[in-house]
Each structure stands twice: as structure tokens, then as C-alpha cells.
Amino acid sequence: MGRTWTSMDDFEAFLDGGGIVEVDDDMPDAYRQAVFAFIEMHANSELMGGLTERDWIPRTPGLRHKMAVLAKTQDEIGHAHLLYMVGADLTVKTRPGMLEDLFAGRSKFHNVFHYQAKTWGDQVAISFLVDAAALASQQAVFKNCSYGPYRRILKRIISEEGFHMRMGEERMLRIAAGTEMQRTMFQQSLDDWWWPALQLFGPDTRPGDVLLRWHIKSERNEVLRASWVQKFVPLLMSYGFTIPDPGLTHDPAADTWTSGPIDWEPLKRTLAMGGPDSARRIADAAANWADTHWVRRVLDDAPTRAAGTAA
């Protein structure tokens, strides 16, 4: 049986001392809820991302990129699977319960999956900008995450997301070296995806944020966002692209880039399931779940294989 703590102060002292909470520990309910909500949103985002990626398997140009998209789809769905298992172990919701809530629009997933990817340029922008933003957020969680099962899963997820980011870089370099038409397409995608990608980090972290206090996250949103801007602005400019931010400023002395005022309304709309593509995405995910019911039934009804028999 796991550990118990006499008070929240006692528990927080344990966390501040670098303590790692395990699933069978008698953790405070508020901590359990906070960790669960965080994992559930991550799981939902992997699933929604995987389904979008799947939509692009037949549309991806070139066999090599197509193979990569196929594998990335499996990665995302696989990550969702692992995260739903870790989430369900916290006993706040069951796995079917989490999916029901997702399909009913009752639980959150990342803002970027509330928009529609219309062109291959959009897919390149997503794999280049959004994957990097997601990876930076996950790395900041992993660095110091107090919940053991999530931290260990994240280690594997981050390694694979790092690989996706390299694929994104490769795609971007290819399109940047492409024809004028390809470059125009990518600039349009940048115009459409720059702000959603930047808003993936969320608004500035509030003072007293429990995710920081309980060492679930280890970095403030605005710090992660600023370093993402610092990385991508000069990189995209060096390839001759324009950043769609009229308020962007450059400090020549320190060679730093700072984004202009951020309009958070689009983010709020996505969180309320009112993004440009929210309804279609959710309906699509629910329909996919219903359509694949027979697969789960076949697997559930299959006789249990004895340990060690070949798959």
C-alpha cells in the first residue's frame, strides 16, 4: 500500500523536496483531480491529433512522407492509449467515461485541434510549429513532474515527439527550397497557424497556479512561449518568410524577439468548443469510435492467449 500524508502542508513539503507520487499513494483529492485533468487533456489531444494525422495519410505527397504520416498516426493513437490507461488508474473517470466526455464536448483538448488543416502547407506548419510547441510544453512538464506514472510515460512520448519535430523541420526545409507556388502556400499556412501555435502555450501563468505549486508543471507558460518565439522568428525569417505579427519587436542589443499583443479570444472560443472546426472534429472522432466498435468487440471476444504464444 502507498504512502499517506497528514496534511496538505505535509504533502506539499514532500513535493517541494522532490518527492514523486505513485498511483497507490493516498494523495490529496485536489492533487489527484489536477493531475487527472492534465493527463486527460493530453490524452484527448493525442487522440484528436492522431485522427487528423490519419486524415492526411491518403493526401500526403510522396511515399516517404506518407510512411512518416502513417507511423506518426500510430504514435499519436498509441500515446493516447497509454495516457488514457495512466489517467484511468487515477480512478477519477474510467476510460470509456473519458471518451464519452470527449465526444460530448465536455472535456478539453488542445486549441490547435479546433482548426482545419486545408493544405499540405498547413500540415507542414503544424508539424514544424505546433509539434515544437507541444514538445516544449511536454519537456517542461517532464523535467520535474511529481506524478511518477505520467513522468515515465512522458519520457517515451517526448522521445517520439522529438522525432516528429525533426520530420517537421525536414518538411519545412523542403517547402522553403521549393517553387514560388509552394512558398506562397507555406506563407499562407504560416499566416493561419502562427497564432494558434503560439496560443498552445496558454495565457500567462497566474500567481499561485497549482500545477506549478505541485510540481506538475515546472515552467511558466509565458516563459515557454517567449522562448518558442525567440527560436522560430529568426529561423523563419532566414528562409524569407514573414511572421504575421505586426507588433513583433526586435531588441538589437540582445538580439531578442518579442511578440506583439496577443488576442486570447480565439483560444477562449476553442476551449468552449466554439473553434472554427470544433464541431466537425468532435463529430468525426465520435463517428470513428462508433465505426470501429466491431474491432473492439472482436478483440474483446477473442479467447485469451496463453502467455508466450505467438501474436
Binding site: 500510430q74 492509449h81 497509454l82 517520439e160
Partner: peptide, 14 residues
């Protein structure tokens, strides 16, 4: 216990 023959990659089970 095996829960799924495939994980995030074809060379891994869960």
C-alpha cells in the same frame, strides 16, 4: 499482462 498487441510503434506491444 498483455493489453494490446500494438503500441505507438509496430515493434512494441502494451
Amino acid at each position: 499482462d498483455e493489453r494490446s498487441m500494438f503500441g505507438p510503434s509496430r515493434c512494441r506491444a502494451v
